[in-house]
Nucleic acid binder design. Structure first.
Lengths: 238, 238
DNA sequence: CGTGAAACGTGATCGACATCACCCGTTGGT
DNA sequence: ACCAACGGGTGATGTCGATCACGTTTCACG
């Protein structure tokens, strides 16, 4: 018997699938039924590793609920967070299609519900249903464009504060607008923020203090209130 | 009547299409025939602009011959070369699929032969032929993985010399191994190399001199001979 | 063949940021 | 209740690379 907590997110996911909110689930009933037949649903606690960079692709992971951190590591041990995937995103798609090893590692940073589809099942699905194939092409296009934007940020930003401001502004898009600024839940440590923009923990700490001093942001627990959204936009040239 | 030069590259492209060398052309005859019917072939001199960042997507460009520079520019005017596309690559795919504006600008850096397919024709092709759709998904996966690797390089490299060494090593993969090192044709100025790794022209000049001093490379005209491939690999931690 | 523009080479300077070192406060585990 | 481990804050220091400035070479083209 599942715990009340698990039931809750399961319910939520089913609902979203039925209503077709998730881009990847918004397909003809027979395709969805087929997907339903071959999928494995898993619920992972925070900190679970879905797969590791370099592994042979076992299949795709459809994230129903929760968030997953995608990282890559240099031979020196430096880590870069490539992306944080949210609900509705498909993970491990390109590797699974091409049969290439996963390019990144995936680790949940929240309790997450994940549907897994084995590689051969997925490839069969693609050949059998043009619709699934079209949706996959769209998902890949979106990921590609997101990667393109990431390349822009990393390559064109002049200073570290510009990168950090850009990151916070990106977060704002999914934040909640309140009386005292846009509220964002930051579930990342300074270390992890540093790994997202290719800098060090100390620099992130210092820059965030600077932003506080300049009244651009306010920190209350794990909430970050962005009070100077316009000023921050002025700092960003990308 | 086409010039001998144009004839030559046209011939070469036809041949490659027939032999199925180009990944995107390696499809069932009826799909190829359909593509043949809707495509527009163009031959562009060096420096032609295929499209500009931000434009509405008109369709896809299949590069048969030549090379195309894909760039993005910051509001400050700084330019980043995202990728140099070569024969067989499809350009403008993700934007065309999603209907989003082109994310980059495309400019030929060699005389190039390009097949253009209009957006609606292409989308019809995708819906009609699962095979075309599968090939598109594969192309997108490859592009996505390439972008991923680019993110790795930009985000994890510690120093600029590491980035430059990595770039040269990447070039080596398509170079010709000779008695005195791997030969590469560099058709880029120092300025453009700088734009590929997010640094300045002066730094590229200085670093290349340093590499010459250390006997890692030799420059003869537009040819670059990599003599110390192993030493350079040692400089790169990504 | 000359001439102007583009590409390349190099020195001087300076600031941003990585690195090291240490401290403090919180948290969670036994 | 304690203390190790973790996350966060901050100073001192050194260095890499951006920037400016100018000279030199190469090359296209009339």
């Amino acid at each position: 018997m599942p715990s009340p907590y698990n039931l809750k997110i399961e319910e939520h996911c089913t609902e979203c699938t039925l209503r077709g909110i998730r881009p990847f689930c918004n397909m003809a009933p027979e395709v969805l039924a087929e997907m339903e037949r071959v999928k494995f649903t898993g619920i992972y606690p925070k900190g679970s590793v879905l797969f590791v960079e370099g592994e042979q692709p076992r299949g795709i992971f459809i994230l129903c609920n929760g968030r997953v951190k995608l990282t890559t590591t240099s031979s020196e041990g430096r880590t870069l967070i490539v992306r944080i995937a949210g609900p509705g995103e498909v993970i491990g798609l390109s590797g699974t299609i091409l049969g290439n090893p996963y390019e990144v590692s995936a680790e949940t940073i929240e309790p997450s519900q994940v549907n897994f589809i084995r590689r051969d099942d997925f490839l069969r699905l693609l050949s059998a249903h043009t619709e699934a194939c079209l949706h996959t092409a769209q998902q890949l296009s979106e990921k590609y464009e997101a990667a393109q934007r990431e390349i822009r940020s990393l390559g064109l930003a002049q200073t570290t504060s510009e990168k950090l401001a850009k990151l916070i502004l990106d977060w704002c898009d999914h934040g909640e607008v309140t009386a005292n600024g846009t509220r964002i839940q930051v579930l990342l440590t300074h270390e992890e923020i540093a790994q997202m923009i290719g800098t060090t923990r100390e620099t992130v700490t210092r820059l965030l203090s600077e932003f506080k001093r300049k009244k651009l942001i306010q920190v209350k627990g794990s909430n970050l209130f962005v009070t100077g959204r316009e000023e921050m936009r002025g700092m960003v040239s990308i």
